[in-house]
Amino acid sequence: MGAVASESAGNGGDGPTDQVLVQRAQSGDYRAFDQLVTRHRGKVYAMIVNMIHNDADAWDLAQDAFVKAWKALPKFEHRAQFSTWLFRISHNVVYDWMRKKKVMSEGELDDQMLDSSRIDSAAPTAPKIPARPDEQLVQNERRAEIEKALSQLSDEHRETILLREVQGMEYTEIADIMECSKGTVMSRLFYARKKLQTLLKP
């Protein structure tokens, strides 16, 4: 009952829960799986495009992730939410692609080299929306700065902060997706935030 309530909250109460749709899809109902794709493709694409910064490849990888999810669906045992399981598949698809393309991050900052005296604990890690329309240019420039800063994080740190800050996932969900401990997630998130604060500091 708890799992159903949790997943219902995740889809905003619009239509059947993920759990119900997964059960239907596991019984061969492709339309149910298509509903799952429609419900989650935006978030999957957003995570992937923020990781690789290429729209066309991101759509291809998202499609690949859903194909793999469909093939693996009979083995899904509902121990985790469907969305968490799907993000884990997407995570693996992205890292396999990066290894093949040899585009793993280079020149990432060393956690041990951070100068804590330069880090303002109150520094923002995201821009504030300008109050006036004529400040759109400033907003766009700030967004570009954030994207550049994110690109300087390691793949693990970047993915961790995107899953937490953009997707709003819990530490345990992120740990499940990235196949690491909750403590590792918290550590990566801490250093990712500090790096961004340092890189975005005026």
Rank of each mutant, 00 (worst) to 15 (best):
A3C: 01
S8W: 10
A9K: 02
N11R: 10
D14M: 12
P16V: 11
T17W: 03
Q19K: 10
L21H: 03
Q23A: 14
S27C: 11
A32Q: 01
F33P: 04
F33I: 08
F33D: 04
F33V: 09
K43A: 14
V44I: 13
Y45T: 08
Y45H: 13
Y45G: 01
M47D: 03
I48L: 11
I48V: 14
I48G: 04
N50K: 12
M51E: 12
D55I: 07
D55R: 10
W59D: 09
D60K: 11
D60W: 11
L61A: 05
A62Q: 15
A62L: 11
A62M: 15
A65R: 00
A65L: 02
K68I: 06
K71F: 08
E77P: 00
H78R: 02
Q81F: 09
F82Q: 01
T84V: 14
L86T: 09
L86Q: 07
F87K: 07
R88K: 10
S90A: 15
D96T: 13
D96P: 02
D96Y: 05
R99V: 07
K100F: 04
K101A: 13
V103S: 08
V103M: 11
L114N: 00
S116Y: 14
D120V: 09
A123P: 08
A123F: 13
A126T: 11
P127R: 02
P130N: 08
R132H: 09
E135H: 07
E135C: 06
E135Q: 12
L137M: 00
V138M: 10
N140V: 06
A144P: 00
I146S: 02
I146C: 08
K148P: 03
L150A: 08
S151V: 01
S151H: 05
L153A: 10
D155L: 09
R158F: 12
T160C: 09
V166I: 15
Q167D: 02
G168A: 03
M169Y: 14
A175E: 03
E179I: 11
G183V: 06
M186R: 07
S187C: 03
R188E: 00
R193P: 01
R193D: 07
K195M: 05
Q197S: 00
L199T: 08
K201F: 08
